[in-house]
Design a protein around this nucleic acid. Sequence first.
DNA 1: GTGAAAGCGCTAACAG
DNA 2: CTGTTAGCGCTTTCAC
Lengths: 337, 337
Amino acid sequence: MNPTIHDVARLSKTSKSTVSRYLNGQPVKKRTEETLKAAIKELGYHPNVNARRLVKNSTQTIGVVVDDISNNFYSGILRGIEKVANLHNYQCVYYNGVSHRQGEFGFLNLAHERQVDGLILISFLKRSPELFEKIKDLSMPVALIGDGGEGIRDHGLLSVDVNNEHGIKEIVHYLNRIGHKEIAFIAGPDEFSATSQRITGYKKALKELGLTLQPSWIVPSDWSKEGGYKAMSELINKGGMTAVIASNDETAIGALLCTHELGFRVPKHFSIAGFDDIEVSSWVYPPLTTVKQPLYQIGIEATEGLVKKMKNKEAPLQGRRLIEPNLVVRDSCMNLL
Amino acid sequence: MNPTIHDVARLSKTSKSTVSRYLNGQPVKKRTEETLKAAIKELGYHPNVNARRLVKNSTQTIGVVVDDISNNFYSGILRGIEKVANLHNYQCVYYNGVSHRQGEFGFLNLAHERQVDGLILISFLKRSPELFEKIKDLSMPVALIGDGGEGIRDHGLLSVDVNNEHGIKEIVHYLNRIGHKEIAFIAGPDEFSATSQRITGYKKALKELGLTLQPSWIVPSDWSKEGGYKAMSELINKGGMTAVIASNDETAIGALLCTHELGFRVPKHFSIAGFDDIEVSSWVYPPLTTVKQPLYQIGIEATEGLVKKMKNKEAPLQGRRLIEPNLVVRDSCMNLL
DNA sequence: GTGAAAGCGCTAACAG
DNA sequence: CTGTTAGCGCTTTCAC
């Protein structure tokens, strides 16, 4: 059996409360402290966190729920989350959304069973109204990363995402600045909330620049390399554009491949840009011009908001924060001027 | 305040013990069961897991410690772990080894504080003797994935890894089968236990095939794309080989790039093979011939061993399991025959 | 089958 | 500053 606080008290000839106080950083007499320290060391004592959690009714833990924990894309977000969590002495437990037997809403048990004090839900898929219903019953702070549930009427949650619309606008403007006027767009799948936001950005930017919108130049795709390949070959068939923006890097890389295989060169015959700035984007040939997701910053902001809420039940701090992404210029777009 | 088991008992006019028994699947009268079910629903009751953990002195949780949770490479391993864990009704909590303030051994607190019932440590870096000392004091089952602590005398732990030696041997034999006799090798960094194992595989395979070992054809590198680039340019300077095996895919991709930039073609002028089979290996041109890490299987086996130990304190089940990787033939090696 | 009672290891008043 | 006491919410004997 493991030593308990009681054993420490006995060995050091004090009481449980004194030990507890010492453990929690409250003042004890210098002399007591030394005895305590010695006893703890001798016994190899470690507090039982389950007992503490029970009595304090708090866990100092943040539950981080992701669809797929090993999805490399989340990497930066998780780093941001851990950074802030650790700073405030919170522990993170990661919960693999999909893989659980309890189904889509299995993560709710983390909250119901009081394993965590707050929740960060990461998903770029459009969230269902049911989800918001369930969260409402939770009586526990929740922060959303990715889709914030637009279209669902005010849910009073903190939500953080990249400014998709603005990100695409930046590329369009950049392309225009280097002389492009015929710009096509490969869109993403409908299940992601970013898809419509990025399309909107594309359309608005064209309008801002006085370029005409060619509806057939917006081709839907699925954010996969294969999808990008297919979309690009369609676009090349249609012809007429000097640049194409893929709404994510993986698609852009597929488009790159297609272009090369059809005997064209990038950026000579077509300029291609992406969105996300995933690692391989700098590996491909030519290195991809893209928009860098502010992943780390997203993690930071969501967690700061959450922590504030957990510490201070008053602070509302709800609302949507959009973080600005940055244009990363590499070699896949040609200067036409 | 959240409803407790006591509230359920009162509402259903039974006792705490009966509620507890029902919750734990022990037999109760049909009639009681219905009342209970109704009361639980009405109150929105959920058991407090912290109380349960305290009294049972067990958490039904596996702690999974990784250097970097967002390292894509671990993806398959984690899937394997979750699969088996869920199957046996264990929950997983992931612990980000490095990022924690408590330092290298911070994960020990997971065990000491009884947050978990068992631990899976994932790391391909050579483990330190101190680590094994600390683990020994843990009185809790531990499984190792990756480095098993060779050279450290018997530690009685279960450890699972890929058969690195055999994996490289397979490539060498394959290359030889398609006519290669002059095969160079780009080695990995010393900190990884796989490095020496893969070098050994290379040397042994050459010997088995009666090929002469050219020491200058083993060039050290660092498992990065840039490192692979550099190593390949050295090798090309030396000249004479028809094939080069990079000891991981990232290095191989760097080598590919270098070869192309120097005006050579793969596999025409040089055949190049890798190890790991990371996602991008099939994206590059030409698609890379490599050895596929049996990641999922590694996760499965480690977790099965751990679960067995957690359920049955007797079962020793220690020892080292090496899982065989599979050769993946794509287009980066030329048939010389 | 069910209820009463004890106790898991800890914290938090409350006196002193 | 320190000890006493009373729980936190649950499981688990032990009677009945």
